[in-house]
Design a protein around this nucleic acid. Structure first.
Lengths: 145, 145
DNA sequence: TATATTTAAGACTCTTTTATCTGAAAATAC
DNA sequence: GTATTTTCAGATAAAAGAGTCTTAAATATA
């Protein structure tokens, strides 16, 4: 049981990778998929979502590919997360209790609301550029191998 | 994308319901499933897990059913969660970054670790009795209708 | 114009989760 | 013993998520 869907995780990783290249040119999805060890066709679908949501720009043909629609320091993680997984991740009752909601939260929900708000703030305040920089400083990689 | 699996949520709700009845007799699974609007056969399977993990006791035949293996104030939510969803929920990297782990966490992971620890503590400290009482005080129901 | 490169789009498959069905096995009551 | 009530166990089905494949459309370049 993952917090984010794989689709969402792959989307974030791909966006981080494109951001890390920091160039103006389009990056072919095939190149991204090979670098990150993500199935090409699957990644294509995911990036289509991001382009449809105006977070990326795509271009067909030779020298085509995708690029960020905005500078990497202006794209917040929350934008990618909500584009792919939707925003209900941060609103639903964790126990699925029928009456439970923001108005009348169950105890777990109330606690979770605090917790969740912290995470949401984090995703709202962290840009691709920022996260990429931090990941780089820590010597972590984006790829599986 | 839910935080807990439906199996886990149903397990918790069923345990809360049995606890709420607070009687010594066995509660038929059919009655629980009807009260909580959960598929009988599905719930049967879930409760089988809980009995196998010694959180519940089951008894066959007329007047049979399930009951809590311990007083409700001695069963912590974490026991049910780990019995059903396992304990890895609280250890994995939220972004699925390859190198990321407890040893060298990515920034998101580090933040998530704090968040997660808070939740884990909550689940470790909250008993069925306690949660049931709170839900009751708030006027929330366990059933879908 | 022809060809190669690249994303777009939709159908399709595979896997996991969720849910249902069926036939036991066990316990009880009569 | 026989019928009834209940859990147990395994097969099956439906739905959703993850991943693959094929064809079409757009672009660049020769």
């Amino acid at each position: 049981m993952l917090f984010f869907s794989k689709t969402c995780i792959y989307g974030i990783r791909a966006a981080l990778y494109v951001a890390s290249l920091g160039k103006q040119e389009y990056v072919p999805i095939r190149a991204i998929s090979e670098q990150l060890n993500i199935s090409f066709h699957f990644l294509t679908k995911i990036l289509q979502i991001l382009t449809q949501q105006n977070l990326m720009i795509s271009y067909r043909g030779p020298n085509g590919g995708v690029s960020l629609a905005k500078p990497a320091d202006q794209i917040k993680l929350i934008e990618i997360i909500e584009a792919i997984d939707g925003s209900n991740l941060f609103t639903e009752c964790i126990l699925g209790l029928p009456g439970c909601g923001t108005q009348s939260p169950c105890p777990i929900h109330a606690q979770w609301a605090v917790t969740r708000q912290g995470m949401q703030n984090m995703f709202e305040n962290t840009s691709l550029a920022e996260l990429g920089r931090q990941i780089n400083e820590l010597g972590l990689r984006l790829a599986d191998t």
